[in-house]
Design a protein around this nucleic acid. Structure first.
Lengths: 222, 222
DNA sequence: TCGGTTTTTGAACCACCGTTCGATTATGGC
DNA sequence: GCCATAATCGAACGGTGGTTCAAAAACCGA
Protein backbone atom coordinates (compact mmCIF):
# COMPACT_ATOMS: atom_id res chain seq x y z
CA UNK A 1 0.00 0.00 0.00
CA UNK A 2 2.62 2.51 1.11
CA UNK A 3 5.06 3.74 -1.50
CA UNK A 4 8.46 2.13 -1.46
CA UNK A 5 10.25 3.53 -4.44
CA UNK A 6 13.81 3.42 -3.21
CA UNK A 7 14.46 -0.26 -2.63
CA UNK A 8 14.65 -0.97 -6.38
CA UNK A 9 16.78 0.75 -8.96
CA UNK A 10 15.01 2.81 -11.56
CA UNK A 11 16.06 0.95 -14.68
CA UNK A 12 15.34 -2.39 -13.09
CA UNK A 13 11.89 -1.17 -12.39
CA UNK A 14 11.45 -0.19 -15.99
CA UNK A 15 12.71 -3.51 -17.17
CA UNK A 16 9.96 -5.18 -15.21
CA UNK A 17 7.42 -2.82 -16.65
CA UNK A 18 8.55 -3.62 -20.13
CA UNK A 19 8.44 -7.34 -19.51
CA UNK A 20 4.94 -7.07 -18.15
CA UNK A 21 3.96 -5.08 -21.21
CA UNK A 22 5.28 -7.74 -23.53
CA UNK A 23 3.41 -10.40 -21.62
CA UNK A 24 0.24 -8.38 -21.95
CA UNK A 25 0.61 -8.28 -25.68
CA UNK A 26 1.16 -12.01 -25.79
CA UNK A 27 -2.03 -12.51 -23.85
CA UNK A 28 -3.93 -10.15 -26.09
CA UNK A 29 -2.84 -12.03 -29.14
CA UNK A 30 -3.79 -15.32 -27.56
CA UNK A 31 -7.17 -13.90 -26.67
CA UNK A 32 -7.73 -12.65 -30.20
CA UNK A 33 -6.82 -16.09 -31.47
CA UNK A 34 -9.31 -17.69 -29.10
CA UNK A 35 -12.00 -15.19 -30.02
CA UNK A 36 -11.49 -15.89 -33.69
CA UNK A 37 -11.75 -19.62 -33.23
CA UNK A 38 -14.65 -19.82 -30.84
CA UNK A 39 -16.37 -16.47 -31.09
CA UNK A 40 -16.25 -13.93 -28.31
CA UNK A 41 -19.15 -15.22 -26.26
CA UNK A 42 -18.14 -18.82 -26.50
CA UNK A 43 -14.64 -18.00 -25.34
CA UNK A 44 -14.16 -18.28 -21.60
CA UNK A 45 -11.39 -16.96 -19.46
CA UNK A 46 -10.18 -20.53 -19.14
CA UNK A 47 -9.90 -20.76 -22.91
CA UNK A 48 -7.89 -17.58 -23.09
CA UNK A 49 -5.70 -18.76 -20.26
CA UNK A 50 -5.08 -22.08 -21.99
CA UNK A 51 -4.26 -20.37 -25.27
CA UNK A 52 -1.90 -17.97 -23.52
CA UNK A 53 -0.44 -20.83 -21.50
CA UNK A 54 -1.09 -19.60 -18.01
CA UNK A 55 -3.59 -20.21 -15.27
CA UNK A 56 -7.02 -18.59 -15.32
CA UNK A 57 -6.44 -16.65 -12.16
CA UNK A 58 -3.21 -15.25 -13.44
CA UNK A 59 -4.98 -13.39 -16.17
CA UNK A 60 -6.21 -11.01 -13.54
CA UNK A 61 -2.71 -9.83 -12.84
CA UNK A 62 -2.56 -8.38 -16.30
CA UNK A 63 -6.13 -7.35 -16.91
CA UNK A 64 -9.02 -6.32 -14.76
CA UNK A 65 -11.28 -8.82 -16.46
CA UNK A 66 -12.62 -10.18 -19.70
CA UNK A 67 -14.04 -6.85 -20.73
CA UNK A 68 -10.71 -5.15 -20.51
CA UNK A 69 -9.13 -7.82 -22.69
CA UNK A 70 -11.77 -7.27 -25.34
CA UNK A 71 -11.31 -3.55 -25.01
CA UNK A 72 -7.61 -3.67 -25.70
CA UNK A 73 -8.11 -5.97 -28.67
CA UNK A 74 -10.48 -3.54 -30.27
CA UNK A 75 -8.45 -0.55 -29.24
CA UNK A 76 -5.34 -1.84 -30.94
CA UNK A 77 -7.19 -2.55 -34.15
CA UNK A 78 -8.72 0.88 -34.15
CA UNK A 79 -5.29 2.39 -33.72
CA UNK A 80 -4.12 0.51 -36.76
CA UNK A 81 -7.04 1.76 -38.77
CA UNK A 82 -6.56 5.34 -37.68
CA UNK A 83 -2.95 5.06 -38.63
CA UNK A 84 -3.86 3.83 -42.10
CA UNK A 85 -6.33 6.67 -42.43
CA UNK A 86 -3.65 9.18 -41.56
CA UNK A 87 -1.25 7.62 -44.02
CA UNK A 88 -3.81 7.85 -46.80
CA UNK A 89 -4.55 11.42 -45.91
CA UNK A 90 -0.88 12.36 -46.06
CA UNK A 91 -0.42 10.62 -49.38
CA UNK A 92 -2.15 13.51 -51.03
CA UNK A 93 -3.67 11.37 -53.77
CA UNK A 94 -7.07 11.88 -55.33
CA UNK A 95 -10.06 11.14 -53.12
CA UNK A 96 -10.93 7.80 -54.75
CA UNK A 97 -7.37 6.61 -54.33
CA UNK A 98 -7.23 7.64 -50.71
CA UNK A 99 -10.50 5.90 -50.03
CA UNK A 100 -9.34 2.75 -51.71
CA UNK A 101 -6.19 2.76 -49.62
CA UNK A 102 -8.16 3.14 -46.41
CA UNK A 103 -10.61 0.41 -47.33
CA UNK A 104 -7.83 -1.91 -48.31
CA UNK A 105 -6.02 -1.39 -45.03
CA UNK A 106 -9.25 -1.77 -43.10
CA UNK A 107 -9.87 -5.24 -44.45
CA UNK A 108 -6.28 -6.25 -43.85
CA UNK A 109 -6.48 -5.18 -40.23
CA UNK A 110 -9.68 -6.96 -39.34
CA UNK A 111 -8.69 -10.13 -41.13
CA UNK A 112 -5.18 -10.12 -39.75
CA UNK A 113 -4.27 -13.59 -38.67
CA UNK A 114 -2.78 -12.55 -35.37
CA UNK A 115 -5.05 -9.84 -34.14
CA UNK A 116 -8.22 -9.91 -36.13
CA UNK A 117 -11.45 -11.43 -34.91
CA UNK A 118 -15.13 -10.84 -34.83
CA UNK A 119 -14.57 -9.38 -31.41
CA UNK A 120 -14.38 -6.06 -33.22
CA UNK A 121 -18.08 -6.06 -33.58
CA UNK A 122 -18.80 -6.63 -29.93
CA UNK A 123 -19.33 -3.24 -28.38
CA UNK A 124 -22.42 -3.97 -26.38
CA UNK A 125 -20.83 -6.24 -23.84
CA UNK A 126 -18.52 -3.52 -22.57
CA UNK A 127 -19.41 -1.36 -19.63
CA UNK A 128 -20.14 2.35 -19.99
CA UNK A 129 -16.62 3.53 -19.36
CA UNK A 130 -14.75 1.33 -21.80
CA UNK A 131 -17.47 1.40 -24.39
CA UNK A 132 -17.50 5.17 -24.43
CA UNK A 133 -13.80 5.31 -25.01
CA UNK A 134 -14.05 2.94 -27.95
CA UNK A 135 -17.06 4.65 -29.43
CA UNK A 136 -15.22 7.91 -29.27
CA UNK A 137 -12.27 6.48 -31.11
CA UNK A 138 -14.43 4.64 -33.61
CA UNK A 139 -16.31 7.83 -34.30
CA UNK A 140 -13.08 9.62 -34.92
CA UNK A 141 -12.26 7.00 -37.52
CA UNK A 142 -15.65 7.19 -39.12
CA UNK A 143 -15.56 10.96 -39.18
CA UNK A 144 -12.17 10.79 -40.83
CA UNK A 145 -13.52 8.72 -43.68
CA UNK A 146 -16.56 10.94 -43.94
CA UNK A 147 -14.30 13.93 -44.21
CA UNK A 148 -12.31 12.24 -46.93
CA UNK A 149 -15.51 11.80 -48.90
CA UNK A 150 -16.81 15.28 -48.20
CA UNK A 151 -13.59 16.87 -49.35
CA UNK A 152 -13.51 14.67 -52.41
CA UNK A 153 -17.02 15.85 -53.24
CA UNK A 154 -16.05 19.47 -52.84
CA UNK A 155 -13.10 18.99 -55.15
CA UNK A 156 -15.32 17.27 -57.67
CA UNK A 157 -13.38 14.05 -57.41
CA UNK A 158 -16.40 12.02 -56.36
CA UNK A 159 -19.92 11.52 -57.60
CA UNK A 160 -22.73 13.10 -55.64
CA UNK A 161 -23.70 11.11 -52.55
CA UNK A 162 -24.46 11.27 -48.87
CA UNK A 163 -21.10 10.98 -47.07
CA UNK A 164 -22.63 9.67 -43.86
CA UNK A 165 -24.56 6.90 -45.52
CA UNK A 166 -21.82 5.95 -47.91
CA UNK A 167 -19.28 5.77 -45.10
CA UNK A 168 -21.45 3.40 -43.15
CA UNK A 169 -22.24 1.31 -46.18
CA UNK A 170 -18.56 1.03 -46.96
CA UNK A 171 -17.66 0.02 -43.43
CA UNK A 172 -20.45 -2.51 -43.43
CA UNK A 173 -19.22 -4.14 -46.61
CA UNK A 174 -15.70 -4.26 -45.21
CA UNK A 175 -16.52 -5.39 -41.68
CA UNK A 176 -18.74 -8.10 -42.98
CA UNK A 177 -15.68 -9.97 -44.16
CA UNK A 178 -15.06 -11.30 -40.66
CA UNK A 179 -18.29 -13.23 -41.02
CA UNK A 180 -17.46 -15.09 -44.17
CA UNK A 181 -13.75 -14.95 -44.82
CA UNK A 182 -11.91 -18.21 -44.22
CA UNK A 183 -8.17 -18.48 -44.74
CA UNK A 184 -8.61 -21.91 -46.27
CA UNK A 185 -10.78 -20.39 -48.98
CA UNK A 186 -9.68 -19.58 -52.52
CA UNK A 187 -8.92 -15.91 -51.96
CA UNK A 188 -6.00 -14.38 -50.12
CA UNK A 189 -6.58 -11.59 -47.65
CA UNK A 190 -4.75 -9.24 -49.95
CA UNK A 191 -6.96 -10.16 -52.90
CA UNK A 192 -10.15 -9.72 -50.94
CA UNK A 193 -8.99 -6.42 -49.55
CA UNK A 194 -8.13 -5.14 -52.99
CA UNK A 195 -11.35 -6.30 -54.63
CA UNK A 196 -13.54 -4.94 -51.90
CA UNK A 197 -11.71 -1.63 -51.81
CA UNK A 198 -12.30 -1.43 -55.51
CA UNK A 199 -15.99 -2.23 -55.24
CA UNK A 200 -16.91 0.10 -52.40
CA UNK A 201 -15.34 3.09 -54.13
CA UNK A 202 -16.50 2.31 -57.64
CA UNK A 203 -19.98 3.55 -57.00
CA UNK A 204 -18.84 7.09 -56.26
CA UNK A 205 -15.81 7.26 -58.53
CA UNK A 206 -16.36 9.36 -61.64
CA UNK A 207 -13.46 7.82 -63.55
CA UNK A 208 -14.65 5.24 -66.10
CA UNK A 209 -13.50 1.84 -64.84
CA UNK A 210 -12.25 3.39 -61.66
CA UNK A 211 -9.92 1.61 -59.34
CA UNK A 212 -7.02 -0.76 -59.14
CA UNK A 213 -4.89 1.99 -57.69
CA UNK A 214 -4.16 0.68 -54.25
CA UNK A 215 -0.52 1.48 -53.63
CA UNK A 216 0.67 -2.13 -53.31
CA UNK A 217 1.36 -2.10 -49.62
CA UNK A 218 3.26 -5.37 -49.90
CA UNK A 219 1.79 -7.34 -47.03
CA UNK A 220 3.20 -4.92 -44.56
CA UNK A 221 1.43 -6.21 -41.49
CA UNK A 222 4.73 -7.08 -39.83
CA UNK B 1 -49.24 -40.61 -24.18
CA UNK B 2 -51.74 -42.86 -25.92
CA UNK B 3 -53.58 -41.41 -28.88
CA UNK B 4 -57.05 -40.12 -28.13
CA UNK B 5 -58.15 -38.44 -31.29
CA UNK B 6 -61.89 -38.88 -30.99
CA UNK B 7 -62.71 -36.93 -27.88
CA UNK B 8 -62.31 -33.60 -29.65
CA UNK B 9 -63.88 -32.47 -32.88
CA UNK B 10 -61.60 -31.85 -35.76
CA UNK B 11 -62.28 -28.19 -36.33
CA UNK B 12 -62.06 -27.46 -32.64
CA UNK B 13 -58.68 -29.03 -32.64
CA UNK B 14 -57.62 -26.85 -35.53
CA UNK B 15 -58.92 -23.78 -33.82
CA UNK B 16 -56.64 -24.50 -30.90
CA UNK B 17 -53.76 -25.07 -33.22
CA UNK B 18 -54.36 -21.74 -34.82
CA UNK B 19 -54.60 -19.96 -31.49
CA UNK B 20 -51.35 -21.49 -30.37
CA UNK B 21 -49.78 -20.40 -33.62
CA UNK B 22 -50.90 -16.83 -33.09
CA UNK B 23 -49.52 -16.87 -29.60
CA UNK B 24 -46.24 -18.15 -30.92
CA UNK B 25 -46.01 -15.25 -33.29
CA UNK B 26 -46.73 -12.83 -30.47
CA UNK B 27 -43.93 -14.34 -28.49
CA UNK B 28 -41.57 -14.21 -31.43
CA UNK B 29 -42.29 -10.56 -31.93
CA UNK B 30 -41.76 -9.87 -28.25
CA UNK B 31 -38.49 -11.74 -28.39
CA UNK B 32 -37.34 -9.79 -31.40
CA UNK B 33 -38.22 -6.59 -29.57
CA UNK B 34 -36.20 -7.70 -26.57
CA UNK B 35 -33.27 -8.75 -28.73
CA UNK B 36 -33.29 -5.42 -30.45
CA UNK B 37 -33.28 -3.50 -27.20
CA UNK B 38 -30.78 -5.52 -25.22
CA UNK B 39 -28.89 -7.51 -27.80
CA UNK B 40 -29.27 -11.23 -28.11
CA UNK B 41 -26.80 -12.30 -25.47
CA UNK B 42 -27.95 -9.82 -22.91
CA UNK B 43 -31.53 -10.94 -23.33
CA UNK B 44 -32.58 -13.66 -20.94
CA UNK B 45 -35.61 -15.89 -21.07
CA UNK B 46 -37.02 -13.84 -18.23
CA UNK B 47 -36.74 -10.72 -20.36
CA UNK B 48 -38.53 -12.37 -23.24
CA UNK B 49 -41.18 -13.66 -20.91
CA UNK B 50 -41.72 -10.21 -19.41
CA UNK B 51 -41.91 -8.62 -22.84
CA UNK B 52 -44.41 -11.24 -24.00
CA UNK B 53 -46.31 -10.95 -20.74
CA UNK B 54 -46.13 -14.50 -19.52
CA UNK B 55 -44.10 -16.50 -17.07
CA UNK B 56 -40.63 -17.78 -17.92
CA UNK B 57 -41.63 -21.37 -17.59
CA UNK B 58 -44.55 -20.91 -19.91
CA UNK B 59 -42.26 -20.07 -22.78
CA UNK B 60 -41.35 -23.72 -22.91
CA UNK B 61 -44.85 -24.66 -23.90
CA UNK B 62 -44.35 -22.83 -27.15
CA UNK B 63 -40.68 -23.32 -27.83
CA UNK B 64 -38.11 -25.90 -26.96
CA UNK B 65 -35.76 -23.23 -25.72
CA UNK B 66 -33.99 -19.99 -26.39
CA UNK B 67 -32.26 -21.35 -29.43
CA UNK B 68 -35.48 -22.25 -31.10
CA UNK B 69 -36.85 -18.77 -30.52
CA UNK B 70 -33.82 -17.28 -32.18
CA UNK B 71 -34.11 -19.77 -34.97
CA UNK B 72 -37.68 -18.85 -35.80
CA UNK B 73 -36.87 -15.15 -35.69
CA UNK B 74 -34.17 -15.60 -38.26
CA UNK B 75 -36.15 -18.08 -40.27
CA UNK B 76 -39.06 -15.72 -40.70
CA UNK B 77 -36.82 -12.90 -41.81
CA UNK B 78 -35.10 -15.15 -44.30
CA UNK B 79 -38.46 -16.16 -45.69
CA UNK B 80 -39.32 -12.53 -46.21
CA UNK B 81 -36.08 -11.93 -48.02
CA UNK B 82 -36.48 -14.95 -50.22
CA UNK B 83 -39.93 -13.78 -51.07
CA UNK B 84 -38.64 -10.38 -52.08
CA UNK B 85 -35.97 -12.04 -54.16
CA UNK B 86 -38.58 -14.08 -55.98
CA UNK B 87 -40.71 -11.00 -56.56
CA UNK B 88 -37.79 -9.15 -58.07
CA UNK B 89 -36.95 -12.09 -60.25
CA UNK B 90 -40.50 -12.30 -61.56
CA UNK B 91 -40.62 -8.58 -62.24
CA UNK B 92 -38.48 -9.19 -65.28
CA UNK B 93 -36.75 -5.84 -65.05
CA UNK B 94 -33.14 -5.16 -65.92
CA UNK B 95 -30.55 -6.65 -63.59
CA UNK B 96 -29.68 -3.38 -61.84
CA UNK B 97 -33.33 -2.73 -61.14
CA UNK B 98 -33.88 -6.21 -59.79
CA UNK B 99 -30.86 -5.90 -57.57
CA UNK B 100 -31.98 -2.57 -56.25
CA UNK B 101 -35.38 -3.99 -55.44
CA UNK B 102 -33.85 -6.88 -53.52
CA UNK B 103 -31.47 -4.65 -51.61
CA UNK B 104 -34.25 -2.25 -50.74
CA UNK B 105 -36.45 -5.04 -49.42
CA UNK B 106 -33.55 -6.54 -47.52
CA UNK B 107 -32.97 -3.38 -45.54
CA UNK B 108 -36.65 -3.00 -44.86
CA UNK B 109 -36.87 -6.51 -43.50
CA UNK B 110 -33.94 -6.33 -41.13
CA UNK B 111 -34.87 -2.89 -39.85
CA UNK B 112 -38.51 -3.70 -39.49
CA UNK B 113 -39.72 -2.34 -36.20
CA UNK B 114 -41.57 -5.45 -35.21
CA UNK B 115 -39.36 -8.25 -36.29
CA UNK B 116 -35.95 -6.90 -37.01
CA UNK B 117 -33.03 -7.19 -34.65
CA UNK B 118 -29.36 -7.90 -34.62
CA UNK B 119 -30.31 -11.45 -33.77
CA UNK B 120 -30.08 -12.05 -37.51
CA UNK B 121 -26.37 -12.07 -37.24
CA UNK B 122 -26.19 -14.65 -34.49
CA UNK B 123 -25.69 -17.97 -36.15
CA UNK B 124 -22.96 -19.36 -33.96
CA UNK B 125 -25.04 -19.83 -30.86
CA UNK B 126 -27.35 -22.30 -32.53
CA UNK B 127 -26.78 -26.01 -32.36
CA UNK B 128 -25.81 -28.06 -35.40
CA UNK B 129 -29.29 -28.97 -36.44
CA UNK B 130 -30.91 -25.56 -36.42
CA UNK B 131 -27.83 -23.80 -37.65
CA UNK B 132 -27.56 -26.08 -40.63
CA UNK B 133 -31.14 -25.39 -41.62
CA UNK B 134 -30.59 -21.66 -41.46
CA UNK B 135 -27.31 -21.78 -43.28
CA UNK B 136 -28.95 -23.76 -46.02
CA UNK B 137 -31.68 -21.21 -46.41
CA UNK B 138 -29.32 -18.28 -46.16
CA UNK B 139 -27.15 -19.85 -48.81
CA UNK B 140 -30.15 -20.22 -51.05
CA UNK B 141 -30.77 -16.51 -50.65
CA UNK B 142 -27.17 -15.62 -51.30
CA UNK B 143 -27.02 -17.88 -54.32
CA UNK B 144 -30.14 -16.23 -55.64
CA UNK B 145 -28.54 -12.82 -55.54
CA UNK B 146 -25.37 -14.19 -57.02
CA UNK B 147 -27.38 -15.66 -59.86
CA UNK B 148 -29.09 -12.33 -60.44
CA UNK B 149 -25.69 -10.74 -60.83
CA UNK B 150 -24.27 -13.52 -62.97
CA UNK B 151 -27.20 -13.38 -65.35
CA UNK B 152 -26.99 -9.62 -65.47
CA UNK B 153 -23.36 -9.92 -66.42
CA UNK B 154 -24.13 -12.40 -69.16
CA UNK B 155 -26.76 -10.09 -70.57
CA UNK B 156 -24.35 -7.19 -70.45
CA UNK B 157 -26.50 -5.29 -68.01
CA UNK B 158 -23.79 -5.08 -65.37
CA UNK B 159 -20.17 -4.04 -65.26
CA UNK B 160 -17.56 -6.73 -64.95
CA UNK B 161 -17.16 -7.99 -61.38
CA UNK B 162 -16.87 -11.06 -59.18
CA UNK B 163 -20.45 -12.07 -58.31
CA UNK B 164 -19.46 -13.88 -55.13
CA UNK B 165 -17.50 -11.02 -53.70
CA UNK B 166 -19.95 -8.36 -54.76
CA UNK B 167 -22.86 -10.28 -53.29
CA UNK B 168 -21.13 -10.51 -49.95
CA UNK B 169 -20.08 -6.89 -50.01
CA UNK B 170 -23.63 -5.85 -50.77
CA UNK B 171 -25.06 -7.96 -47.99
CA UNK B 172 -22.46 -6.58 -45.61
CA UNK B 173 -23.36 -3.01 -46.41
CA UNK B 174 -27.03 -3.79 -45.96
CA UNK B 175 -26.78 -5.94 -42.85
CA UNK B 176 -24.58 -3.39 -41.18
CA UNK B 177 -27.57 -1.10 -40.83
CA UNK B 178 -28.74 -3.00 -37.76
CA UNK B 179 -25.63 -1.73 -36.04
CA UNK B 180 -26.14 1.94 -36.59
CA UNK B 181 -29.71 2.62 -37.59
CA UNK B 182 -31.82 4.28 -34.91
CA UNK B 183 -35.48 5.10 -35.53
CA UNK B 184 -35.08 8.38 -33.68
CA UNK B 185 -32.46 9.45 -36.21
CA UNK B 186 -33.03 11.80 -39.15
CA UNK B 187 -33.60 9.12 -41.79
CA UNK B 188 -36.62 6.95 -42.27
CA UNK B 189 -36.19 3.25 -42.90
CA UNK B 190 -37.54 3.75 -46.40
CA UNK B 191 -35.03 6.48 -47.13
CA UNK B 192 -32.11 4.44 -45.85
CA UNK B 193 -33.23 1.40 -47.79
CA UNK B 194 -33.52 3.39 -50.98
CA UNK B 195 -30.20 5.17 -50.61
CA UNK B 196 -28.32 2.04 -49.75
CA UNK B 197 -29.92 0.05 -52.54
CA UNK B 198 -28.82 2.80 -54.85
CA UNK B 199 -25.27 2.83 -53.54
CA UNK B 200 -24.59 -0.90 -53.56
CA UNK B 201 -25.70 -1.26 -57.17
CA UNK B 202 -24.15 1.88 -58.52
CA UNK B 203 -20.70 0.38 -58.62
CA UNK B 204 -21.71 -2.29 -61.11
CA UNK B 205 -24.39 -0.42 -63.02
CA UNK B 206 -23.30 0.70 -66.48
CA UNK B 207 -25.98 3.35 -66.81
CA UNK B 208 -24.62 6.87 -66.19
CA UNK B 209 -26.14 8.05 -62.92
CA UNK B 210 -27.69 4.66 -62.39
CA UNK B 211 -30.39 4.11 -59.87
CA UNK B 212 -33.45 5.59 -58.27
CA UNK B 213 -35.55 2.92 -59.86
CA UNK B 214 -36.83 1.05 -56.86
CA UNK B 215 -40.48 0.36 -57.60
CA UNK B 216 -41.92 2.41 -54.75
CA UNK B 217 -43.12 -0.44 -52.62
CA UNK B 218 -45.17 1.90 -50.49
CA UNK B 219 -44.20 0.78 -46.99
CA UNK B 220 -45.81 -2.56 -47.53
CA UNK B 221 -44.27 -4.32 -44.55
CA UNK B 222 -47.61 -4.99 -42.91
C1' DT C 1 21.64 -16.58 1.24
C1' DC C 2 18.10 -13.33 2.61
C1' DG C 3 13.81 -10.18 2.07
C1' DG C 4 10.81 -7.93 -0.77
C1' DT C 5 8.17 -7.96 -4.58
C1' DT C 6 6.13 -9.93 -8.54
C1' DT C 7 4.22 -13.79 -10.66
C1' DT C 8 1.70 -17.90 -10.69
C1' DT C 9 -1.44 -21.31 -9.28
C1' DG C 10 -5.77 -23.88 -8.77
C1' DA C 11 -9.36 -24.42 -5.97
C1' DA C 12 -13.39 -22.23 -4.37
C1' DC C 13 -17.00 -18.73 -4.70
C1' DC C 14 -20.99 -16.83 -6.48
C1' DA C 15 -24.18 -14.88 -9.43
C1' DC C 16 -26.67 -15.52 -13.34
C1' DC C 17 -29.43 -17.98 -16.62
C1' DG C 18 -31.53 -21.60 -19.22
C1' DT C 19 -34.33 -25.04 -18.02
C1' DT C 20 -37.41 -28.35 -15.44
C1' DC C 21 -41.26 -29.66 -12.77
C1' DG C 22 -45.30 -30.31 -10.02
C1' DA C 23 -49.17 -27.93 -9.10
C1' DT C 24 -52.97 -24.75 -10.29
C1' DT C 25 -56.08 -22.58 -13.33
C1' DA C 26 -58.57 -21.82 -17.77
C1' DT C 27 -60.93 -23.97 -21.80
C1' DG C 28 -64.27 -26.34 -24.51
C1' DG C 29 -66.91 -30.26 -25.86
C1' DC C 30 -70.48 -33.57 -23.98
C1' DG D 1 -71.41 -29.64 -14.11
C1' DC D 2 -67.65 -33.01 -15.66
C1' DC D 3 -63.60 -34.32 -17.54
C1' DA D 4 -59.58 -34.28 -20.40
C1' DT D 5 -56.52 -31.33 -22.24
C1' DA D 6 -54.08 -27.11 -22.76
C1' DA D 7 -52.19 -23.16 -20.65
C1' DT D 8 -49.95 -20.94 -16.93
C1' DC D 9 -47.31 -20.19 -13.01
C1' DG D 10 -43.24 -19.64 -9.99
C1' DA D 11 -40.10 -21.83 -7.31
C1' DA D 12 -36.13 -24.57 -7.60
C1' DC D 13 -32.21 -26.97 -9.94
C1' DG D 14 -27.86 -27.44 -12.27
C1' DG D 15 -24.19 -25.90 -14.78
C1' DT D 16 -21.47 -22.56 -16.60
C1' DG D 17 -18.25 -18.97 -16.35
C1' DG D 18 -16.24 -14.74 -14.54
C1' DT D 19 -13.93 -13.68 -10.60
C1' DT D 20 -11.56 -13.93 -5.95
C1' DC D 21 -8.21 -15.46 -2.78
C1' DA D 22 -4.75 -17.42 0.07
C1' DA D 23 -0.79 -19.62 -0.53
C1' DA D 24 3.33 -21.17 -3.10
C1' DA D 25 6.97 -20.32 -6.44
C1' DA D 26 10.05 -17.51 -9.00
C1' DC D 27 12.68 -13.46 -9.39
C1' DC D 28 16.20 -10.04 -8.16
C1' DG D 29 18.98 -6.81 -5.95
C1' DA D 30 21.83 -6.72 -1.82
Amino acid sequence: MVQKPNNRSKDADERLKRRAEVRRLEILRAAARAFRQLGYHATGMRDIAAEADLSPGNLYHYFKGKEEILFFCQDRSLDNMLEALERARLSGGAAPDQLRAVADAHVRVILDELEGSDAHLELDVLGQELRDKLIKKRDRYERGIRKLIAEGLKRGELLDCDPVLVTRAMLGALNWTVRWYRPEGPRSIAAVARSLADYVVRGIDPSPAGGAAVPETEGGSS
